[in-house]
Design a protein around this nucleic acid. Structure first.
Lengths: 162, 162
DNA sequence: TTGTGTAATGTTATAATATAACATTAAAAT
DNA sequence: ATTTTAATGTTATATTATAACATTACACAA
Protein backbone atom coordinates (compact mmCIF):
# COMPACT_ATOMS: atom_id res chain seq x y z
CA UNK A 1 0.00 0.00 0.00
CA UNK A 2 2.91 2.32 0.77
CA UNK A 3 5.51 3.12 -1.81
CA UNK A 4 8.00 0.30 -1.90
CA UNK A 5 10.95 2.66 -1.64
CA UNK A 6 11.83 6.01 -0.18
CA UNK A 7 12.55 8.74 -2.65
CA UNK A 8 16.18 9.88 -2.49
CA UNK A 9 18.08 12.02 -4.98
CA UNK A 10 19.39 8.77 -6.43
CA UNK A 11 16.11 6.92 -6.70
CA UNK A 12 14.06 9.92 -7.70
CA UNK A 13 13.77 8.94 -11.36
CA UNK A 14 12.11 5.77 -10.16
CA UNK A 15 9.79 7.75 -7.94
CA UNK A 16 8.71 9.80 -10.95
CA UNK A 17 8.11 6.88 -13.23
CA UNK A 18 6.27 5.10 -10.46
CA UNK A 19 3.89 8.01 -10.08
CA UNK A 20 3.39 8.24 -13.83
CA UNK A 21 2.77 4.52 -14.20
CA UNK A 22 0.25 4.64 -11.41
CA UNK A 23 -1.46 7.60 -13.02
CA UNK A 24 -1.70 5.79 -16.34
CA UNK A 25 -3.16 2.72 -14.74
CA UNK A 26 -5.67 4.72 -12.76
CA UNK A 27 -6.80 6.80 -15.70
CA UNK A 28 -7.20 3.74 -17.89
CA UNK A 29 -9.29 2.02 -15.24
CA UNK A 30 -11.45 5.10 -14.89
CA UNK A 31 -11.82 5.61 -18.60
CA UNK A 32 -10.43 9.12 -18.54
CA UNK A 33 -7.72 10.38 -20.80
CA UNK A 34 -4.24 11.09 -19.51
CA UNK A 35 -3.36 13.08 -22.62
CA UNK A 36 0.22 14.03 -23.50
CA UNK A 37 -0.15 17.47 -21.94
CA UNK A 38 -1.65 16.13 -18.75
CA UNK A 39 1.01 13.46 -18.57
CA UNK A 40 3.73 16.02 -19.11
CA UNK A 41 2.39 18.35 -16.42
CA UNK A 42 2.22 15.51 -13.95
CA UNK A 43 5.75 14.54 -14.86
CA UNK A 44 7.01 18.08 -14.31
CA UNK A 45 5.30 18.22 -10.95
CA UNK A 46 6.88 14.96 -9.84
CA UNK A 47 10.26 16.01 -11.13
CA UNK A 48 10.25 18.82 -8.61
CA UNK A 49 8.80 16.63 -5.92
CA UNK A 50 7.82 19.76 -4.04
CA UNK A 51 5.07 22.35 -4.47
CA UNK A 52 5.25 24.00 -7.90
CA UNK A 53 3.40 27.06 -9.13
CA UNK A 54 1.32 26.99 -12.30
CA UNK A 55 3.54 29.54 -13.98
CA UNK A 56 6.64 27.55 -13.16
CA UNK A 57 5.10 24.67 -15.02
CA UNK A 58 4.08 26.98 -17.82
CA UNK A 59 7.65 28.17 -18.24
CA UNK A 60 8.93 24.64 -18.47
CA UNK A 61 6.29 23.66 -20.98
CA UNK A 62 7.14 26.68 -23.09
CA UNK A 63 10.61 25.32 -23.66
CA UNK A 64 8.97 22.97 -26.15
CA UNK A 65 6.71 25.42 -27.92
CA UNK A 66 4.07 28.05 -27.31
CA UNK A 67 1.75 27.28 -24.43
CA UNK A 68 -0.74 29.60 -22.74
CA UNK A 69 -1.93 29.64 -19.12
CA UNK A 70 -5.31 27.98 -19.71
CA UNK A 71 -3.57 24.90 -21.00
CA UNK A 72 -1.70 24.48 -17.75
CA UNK A 73 -4.67 25.24 -15.56
CA UNK A 74 -6.83 22.78 -17.44
CA UNK A 75 -4.29 20.05 -16.99
CA UNK A 76 -4.02 20.92 -13.31
CA UNK A 77 -7.80 20.83 -12.96
CA UNK A 78 -7.93 17.42 -14.52
CA UNK A 79 -5.14 16.04 -12.38
CA UNK A 80 -6.80 17.41 -9.27
CA UNK A 81 -10.14 15.91 -10.19
CA UNK A 82 -8.46 12.56 -10.60
CA UNK A 83 -6.73 12.95 -7.25
CA UNK A 84 -3.32 12.80 -8.89
CA UNK A 85 -2.22 16.11 -7.48
CA UNK A 86 -3.17 18.34 -4.58
CA UNK A 87 -3.44 22.09 -4.51
CA UNK A 88 -1.78 23.82 -1.60
CA UNK A 89 -3.94 26.79 -0.77
CA UNK A 90 -1.38 28.53 1.39
CA UNK A 91 1.20 28.42 -1.40
CA UNK A 92 -0.90 28.66 -4.55
CA UNK A 93 1.00 25.64 -5.70
CA UNK A 94 0.57 22.03 -6.66
CA UNK A 95 2.17 18.80 -5.60
CA UNK A 96 1.92 15.19 -6.67
CA UNK A 97 -0.35 13.05 -4.56
CA UNK A 98 1.40 10.22 -2.81
CA UNK A 99 -1.65 7.97 -2.69
CA UNK A 100 -3.87 8.62 -5.67
CA UNK A 101 -5.50 5.19 -5.56
CA UNK A 102 -8.31 6.27 -3.29
CA UNK A 103 -9.83 9.62 -2.51
CA UNK A 104 -8.70 11.10 0.74
CA UNK A 105 -8.23 14.21 2.79
CA UNK A 106 -4.54 14.97 2.78
CA UNK A 107 -2.67 16.91 5.41
CA UNK A 108 0.41 18.78 4.39
CA UNK A 109 3.56 19.62 6.28
CA UNK A 110 5.40 22.42 4.56
CA UNK A 111 8.98 23.28 5.47
CA UNK A 112 9.54 27.03 5.63
CA UNK A 113 13.21 26.60 5.02
CA UNK A 114 13.74 24.07 2.23
CA UNK A 115 10.14 24.20 0.95
CA UNK A 116 9.90 20.45 0.98
CA UNK A 117 6.56 18.91 1.69
CA UNK A 118 5.30 15.81 3.38
CA UNK A 119 1.80 14.55 2.87
CA UNK A 120 0.30 12.63 5.71
CA UNK A 121 -3.07 10.95 5.58
CA UNK A 122 -4.19 10.65 9.13
CA UNK A 123 -7.77 9.53 9.60
CA UNK A 124 -7.72 10.76 13.19
CA UNK A 125 -7.09 14.31 12.06
CA UNK A 126 -9.92 14.30 9.55
CA UNK A 127 -12.22 12.60 12.02
CA UNK A 128 -11.59 15.09 14.80
CA UNK A 129 -12.13 17.98 12.43
CA UNK A 130 -15.33 16.52 11.04
CA UNK A 131 -16.64 15.77 14.50
CA UNK A 132 -16.03 19.25 15.75
CA UNK A 133 -17.58 20.76 12.67
CA UNK A 134 -20.66 18.61 13.04
CA UNK A 135 -20.84 19.46 16.73
CA UNK A 136 -21.60 23.06 15.76
CA UNK A 137 -24.14 22.03 13.16
CA UNK A 138 -21.86 22.24 10.15
CA UNK A 139 -21.84 19.66 7.36
CA UNK A 140 -18.17 19.22 6.40
CA UNK A 141 -17.35 18.21 2.85
CA UNK A 142 -13.76 19.10 2.23
CA UNK A 143 -10.80 19.87 4.46
CA UNK A 144 -7.74 22.01 3.93
CA UNK A 145 -5.04 21.20 6.45
CA UNK A 146 -1.65 22.77 5.88
CA UNK A 147 1.01 23.04 8.53
CA UNK A 148 3.93 25.33 8.12
CA UNK A 149 7.10 24.67 10.10
CA UNK A 150 10.44 22.96 9.76
CA UNK A 151 11.26 19.53 8.44
CA UNK A 152 13.57 17.38 10.51
CA UNK A 153 16.78 18.40 8.83
CA UNK A 154 16.05 22.10 8.70
CA UNK A 155 14.93 22.16 12.31
CA UNK A 156 18.31 20.78 13.38
CA UNK A 157 20.07 23.49 11.44
CA UNK A 158 17.76 26.18 12.83
CA UNK A 159 18.58 25.21 16.37
CA UNK A 160 22.31 25.22 15.75
CA UNK A 161 22.45 28.45 13.76
CA UNK A 162 19.87 30.29 15.87
CA UNK B 1 -14.61 34.99 27.70
CA UNK B 2 -17.14 34.33 24.97
CA UNK B 3 -19.04 37.14 23.36
CA UNK B 4 -21.90 38.10 25.61
CA UNK B 5 -24.39 38.01 22.73
CA UNK B 6 -24.96 36.21 19.51
CA UNK B 7 -24.70 38.31 16.39
CA UNK B 8 -28.03 38.58 14.58
CA UNK B 9 -29.03 41.00 11.83
CA UNK B 10 -30.56 43.14 14.57
CA UNK B 11 -27.64 43.12 16.98
CA UNK B 12 -24.95 43.28 14.34
CA UNK B 13 -24.13 46.95 14.91
CA UNK B 14 -23.31 46.00 18.46
CA UNK B 15 -21.16 43.13 17.27
CA UNK B 16 -19.18 45.54 15.11
CA UNK B 17 -18.66 48.14 17.79
CA UNK B 18 -17.72 45.41 20.22
CA UNK B 19 -15.02 44.18 17.91
CA UNK B 20 -13.74 47.70 17.32
CA UNK B 21 -13.71 48.55 21.01
CA UNK B 22 -11.80 45.39 21.73
CA UNK B 23 -9.33 46.19 19.00
CA UNK B 24 -8.75 49.68 20.38
CA UNK B 25 -8.17 48.38 23.86
CA UNK B 26 -5.79 45.70 22.65
CA UNK B 27 -3.78 48.06 20.48
CA UNK B 28 -3.48 50.59 23.26
CA UNK B 29 -2.27 47.94 25.67
CA UNK B 30 0.26 46.74 23.13
CA UNK B 31 1.41 50.22 22.25
CA UNK B 32 0.68 49.83 18.59
CA UNK B 33 -1.32 52.27 16.54
CA UNK B 34 -4.78 51.50 15.32
CA UNK B 35 -4.70 54.36 12.83
CA UNK B 36 -7.84 55.66 11.09
CA UNK B 37 -7.17 53.53 8.02
CA UNK B 38 -6.59 50.39 10.03
CA UNK B 39 -9.64 51.08 12.11
CA UNK B 40 -11.72 51.67 9.02
CA UNK B 41 -10.56 48.46 7.35
CA UNK B 42 -11.35 46.48 10.45
CA UNK B 43 -14.76 48.10 10.60
CA UNK B 44 -15.48 47.23 6.97
CA UNK B 45 -14.46 43.65 7.60
CA UNK B 46 -16.75 43.34 10.58
CA UNK B 47 -19.59 45.01 8.73
CA UNK B 48 -19.59 42.12 6.31
CA UNK B 49 -19.08 39.58 9.05
CA UNK B 50 -17.97 37.11 6.46
CA UNK B 51 -14.79 36.66 4.42
CA UNK B 52 -14.01 39.75 2.34
CA UNK B 53 -11.45 40.16 -0.41
CA UNK B 54 -8.84 42.90 -0.32
CA UNK B 55 -10.23 44.51 -3.45
CA UNK B 56 -13.73 44.54 -2.02
CA UNK B 57 -12.37 46.54 0.86
CA UNK B 58 -10.46 48.74 -1.54
CA UNK B 59 -13.63 49.57 -3.44
CA UNK B 60 -15.42 50.56 -0.29
CA UNK B 61 -12.53 52.70 0.86
CA UNK B 62 -12.44 54.42 -2.50
CA UNK B 63 -15.91 55.78 -1.93
CA UNK B 64 -14.25 58.27 0.36
CA UNK B 65 -11.30 59.24 -1.80
CA UNK B 66 -8.45 57.81 -3.76
CA UNK B 67 -6.86 54.72 -2.21
CA UNK B 68 -4.40 52.29 -3.76
CA UNK B 69 -3.94 48.57 -3.10
CA UNK B 70 -0.83 48.85 -0.91
CA UNK B 71 -2.79 50.88 1.59
CA UNK B 72 -5.29 48.09 2.03
CA UNK B 73 -2.72 45.33 2.14
CA UNK B 74 -0.69 47.20 4.72
CA UNK B 75 -3.69 47.61 6.94
CA UNK B 76 -4.53 43.95 6.50
CA UNK B 77 -0.96 42.97 7.37
CA UNK B 78 -1.11 45.02 10.53
CA UNK B 79 -4.47 43.61 11.59
CA UNK B 80 -3.24 40.10 10.97
CA UNK B 81 -0.09 40.65 12.97
CA UNK B 82 -2.20 41.87 15.84
CA UNK B 83 -4.45 38.85 15.54
CA UNK B 84 -7.45 41.04 14.81
CA UNK B 85 -8.23 39.32 11.55
CA UNK B 86 -7.50 35.98 9.93
CA UNK B 87 -6.63 35.28 6.36
CA UNK B 88 -8.49 32.45 4.69
CA UNK B 89 -6.06 30.80 2.36
CA UNK B 90 -8.64 28.88 0.42
CA UNK B 91 -10.60 32.04 -0.35
CA UNK B 92 -7.93 34.72 -0.54
CA UNK B 93 -10.05 36.64 1.88
CA UNK B 94 -10.08 38.07 5.36
CA UNK B 95 -12.39 37.82 8.31
CA UNK B 96 -12.54 39.39 11.74
CA UNK B 97 -11.13 37.28 14.52
CA UNK B 98 -13.66 36.33 17.14
CA UNK B 99 -11.11 36.05 19.96
CA UNK B 100 -8.27 38.47 19.39
CA UNK B 101 -7.30 38.63 23.06
CA UNK B 102 -4.88 35.76 22.85
CA UNK B 103 -2.98 34.20 19.99
CA UNK B 104 -4.48 30.99 18.73
CA UNK B 105 -4.81 28.59 15.86
CA UNK B 106 -8.22 29.11 14.39
CA UNK B 107 -10.21 26.57 12.45
CA UNK B 108 -12.67 27.81 9.90
CA UNK B 109 -15.93 26.37 8.67
CA UNK B 110 -16.88 27.93 5.37
CA UNK B 111 -20.37 27.53 3.94
CA UNK B 112 -20.30 26.88 0.19
CA UNK B 113 -23.79 28.17 -0.20
CA UNK B 114 -24.17 31.38 1.81
CA UNK B 115 -20.44 31.98 2.24
CA UNK B 116 -20.85 32.50 5.94
CA UNK B 117 -18.03 31.47 8.19
CA UNK B 118 -17.69 30.10 11.67
CA UNK B 119 -14.42 30.19 13.53
CA UNK B 120 -13.88 27.46 16.05
CA UNK B 121 -10.89 27.27 18.33
CA UNK B 122 -10.58 23.67 19.28
CA UNK B 123 -7.40 22.76 21.14
CA UNK B 124 -7.94 19.10 20.37
CA UNK B 125 -7.72 19.74 16.65
CA UNK B 126 -4.49 21.70 16.94
CA UNK B 127 -3.06 19.16 19.33
CA UNK B 128 -3.79 16.17 17.13
CA UNK B 129 -2.30 17.93 14.14
CA UNK B 130 0.81 18.98 16.03
CA UNK B 131 1.28 15.50 17.45
CA UNK B 132 1.02 13.83 14.07
CA UNK B 133 3.40 16.31 12.56
CA UNK B 134 5.92 15.77 15.31
CA UNK B 135 5.51 12.03 14.97
CA UNK B 136 7.04 12.25 11.50
CA UNK B 137 9.85 14.52 12.69
CA UNK B 138 8.27 17.80 11.66
CA UNK B 139 8.36 20.92 13.82
CA UNK B 140 4.95 22.56 13.40
CA UNK B 141 4.68 26.32 13.79
CA UNK B 142 1.48 27.40 12.14
CA UNK B 143 -1.68 25.62 11.07
CA UNK B 144 -4.15 26.34 8.33
CA UNK B 145 -7.40 24.48 8.89
CA UNK B 146 -10.28 25.37 6.61
CA UNK B 147 -13.33 23.21 6.13
CA UNK B 148 -15.67 23.77 3.28
CA UNK B 149 -19.23 22.47 3.52
CA UNK B 150 -22.70 23.65 4.47
CA UNK B 151 -23.81 25.60 7.49
CA UNK B 152 -26.81 24.33 9.37
CA UNK B 153 -29.41 26.37 7.54
CA UNK B 154 -28.05 25.80 4.07
CA UNK B 155 -27.68 22.08 4.67
CA UNK B 156 -31.39 21.83 5.46
CA UNK B 157 -32.23 23.62 2.23
CA UNK B 158 -29.81 21.46 0.26
CA UNK B 159 -31.48 18.30 1.44
CA UNK B 160 -34.93 19.58 0.61
CA UNK B 161 -34.12 21.04 -2.79
CA UNK B 162 -31.75 18.24 -3.79
C1' DT C 1 9.86 73.76 20.23
C1' DT C 2 12.45 72.31 17.10
C1' DG C 3 15.08 69.02 15.05
C1' DT C 4 15.67 63.94 14.15
C1' DG C 5 14.51 59.31 13.50
C1' DT C 6 10.92 56.03 12.72
C1' DA C 7 6.51 54.55 11.39
C1' DA C 8 2.75 55.14 8.37
C1' DT C 9 0.85 56.41 4.18
C1' DG C 10 0.82 57.97 -0.77
C1' DT C 11 1.87 56.92 -5.51
C1' DT C 12 3.19 54.58 -9.60
C1' DA C 13 4.16 50.67 -11.69
C1' DT C 14 4.18 45.91 -12.20
C1' DA C 15 4.33 40.98 -10.66
C1' DA C 16 1.89 36.72 -9.95
C1' DT C 17 -2.12 33.95 -10.16
C1' DA C 18 -6.27 32.67 -12.61
C1' DT C 19 -10.28 32.59 -15.79
C1' DA C 20 -13.72 34.02 -19.62
C1' DA C 21 -14.95 33.45 -24.18
C1' DC C 22 -14.71 31.72 -28.40
C1' DA C 23 -12.13 29.08 -32.27
C1' DT C 24 -10.10 24.85 -33.64
C1' DT C 25 -8.70 20.13 -33.51
C1' DA C 26 -8.81 15.36 -32.02
C1' DA C 27 -11.23 11.40 -30.44
C1' DA C 28 -15.15 8.54 -29.57
C1' DA C 29 -19.61 6.96 -30.58
C1' DT C 30 -23.14 6.02 -33.73
C1' DA D 1 -18.65 8.81 -42.66
C1' DT D 2 -21.01 11.65 -39.70
C1' DT D 3 -21.97 13.57 -35.64
C1' DT D 4 -21.08 14.62 -31.12
C1' DT D 5 -18.20 15.41 -27.35
C1' DA D 6 -13.87 16.26 -25.21
C1' DA D 7 -9.59 18.53 -25.41
C1' DT D 8 -6.71 22.11 -26.77
C1' DG D 9 -5.47 26.66 -28.92
C1' DT D 10 -5.76 31.62 -28.69
C1' DT D 11 -6.67 36.19 -27.19
C1' DA D 12 -7.88 39.01 -23.85
C1' DT D 13 -8.60 40.24 -19.29
C1' DA D 14 -9.79 39.55 -14.30
C1' DT D 15 -8.07 39.05 -9.70
C1' DT D 16 -4.75 39.13 -6.07
C1' DA D 17 -0.50 41.02 -4.38
C1' DT D 18 3.97 43.48 -3.98
C1' DA D 19 8.24 46.39 -5.24
C1' DA D 20 10.20 50.72 -5.02
C1' DC D 21 10.50 55.16 -3.88
C1' DA D 22 8.29 59.76 -2.27
C1' DT D 23 5.91 62.09 1.29
C1' DT D 24 3.70 62.91 5.60
C1' DA D 25 2.70 62.27 10.49
C1' DC D 26 4.22 61.03 14.94
C1' DA D 27 7.14 60.29 18.98
C1' DC D 28 10.55 61.74 21.70
C1' DA D 29 15.15 63.79 22.83
C1' DA D 30 17.78 67.70 23.12
Amino acid sequence: MQDPFVCTPVSHHQCISNALDQAETLCRSRNVRLTPIRHRVLELIWQQHRPVGAYDLLEQLQQQGRVAPPTVYRALDFLQQQGLIHRLESLNAFVGCAHPQYPHQGQFLICKSCRSLVEITDPEISTVINNRAEAVGFKPLNQTVEVSGFCDGCWQKEQING
